[in-house]
């Protein structure tokens, strides 16, 4: 699709617990500005894929083989130290539960400063980056003085995104980032991600079971079932012309897509409008 080198490149990934393969992905690339969605039911191995991309399977009972290149660093078999260097700086995470994913005992600003210091940014530079990142996700500057339970779900998710932006992570891995939010708030969050893709070339690896959402934001879709990739390709192809029975079954379960509402812009680096109405799709 785009000529840029992939920020995340997965090849022949296989994650096993004992004899059971929980996630097998032959190939997956995420390029700058792209949104790659991984869809499937729970237990399909999509969240395990996300953990592998973050190098969070090291030190667990999971056995990982193949290759996961993130920002040019191989994570399969990498040391914990190497993986820690990649996490936060080359790829950052946004989780499903908005408040739950932020440390309840810390004011938001402290969390951001801790994270920046972890990656060698401190003092005035750290403050500048946080201010810019908050601006980029349209959060008020004084939110840094609040505790997670004092902000709304949408604000918490946008703050998690802001942390990734402040760290300069070119890839945001998002695990069901909007499924705990109201529809209008979902739209806000997706709009923020959209704008980042457009303006800063941030790539998004989106894990979701929400095909309606995926149809409006993704460029590329990977469908997983029981730990294996069963379908993959351009969003338009997968959602409208797929011949894979499982994909069709998934789509049939989403009434609105059945009515043929087409996704907005074609894939790639082409700028896309990011209005709230559309984001809500």
């Amino acid at each position: 699709m785009t000529a840029a080198a992939p920020l995340v490149s997965v090849r022949d990934l296989e994650v096993r617990y004992g004899d059971r393969v929980v996630s097998a992905v032959p190939a997956l690339d995420v390029r700058p500005g792209q949104c790659v969605a991984v869809v499937g039911e729970s237990g399909s191995g999509k969240s395990t894929l996300l953990l592998a991309v973050l190098g969070l399977l090291n030190g667990t009972p999971a056995r990982v083989s193949g290759s996961v290149l993130v920002g040019g660093t191989e994570l399969v078999g990498a040391s914990e130290r190497t993986a820690q260097g990649v996490r936060g700086s080359a790829v950052s995470l946004v989780l499903q539960s908005p408040q739950g994913s932020l440390n309840p005992t810390m004011r938001l600003g402290r969390l951001a400063r801790h994270a920046l210091r972890r990656h060698g940014v401190r003092g005035a530079e750290a403050r500048r980056r946080v201010a810019e990142a908050l601006d980029a996700v349209r959060l008020p500057a004084d939110i840094v003085d609040r505790y997670p339970h004092e902000v709304s779900g949408g604000q918490a998710q946008r703050f998690a995104i802001a942390t990734a932006v402040a760290l300069g992570a070119p890839v945001i891995a998002a695990d069901e980032p909007t499924s705990a939010l109201d529809v209008t708030v979902q739209a806000e969050v997706m709009a923020v991600l959209d704008r980042l893709r457009r303006e800063q070339g941030t790539a998004v690896l989106l894990v979701s079971h929400d095909l309606a959402l995926v149809s409006t934001v993704a460029d590329h879709v990977v469908v997983m079932q029981d730990g294996a990739v069963v379908d993959a390709g351009d969003v338009d192809h997968v959602l409208h012309r797929s011949t894979v029975p499982y994909t069709r079954a998934l789509l049939a379960a989403v009434p609105r897509l059945g009515h043929g509402r087409s996704p907005s812009a074609p894939a790639g680096a082409v700028p896309r409008p990011a209005t709230t109405e559309e984001g809500a799709g």
Binding site: Q84, V86, S92, L93, L95, L102, R118, H119, T163
Partner: peptide, 21 residues
């Protein structure tokens, strides 16, 4: 908790997540 996974994803090691967070 989710926040611990988040902190790990921000590049903190297991010990730091336990002690600092």
């Amino acid at each position: 908790q989710d926040h611990a996974r988040m902190e790990r994803a921000l590049g903190f090691g297991r010990l730091a997540v336990l002690v600092r967070f």
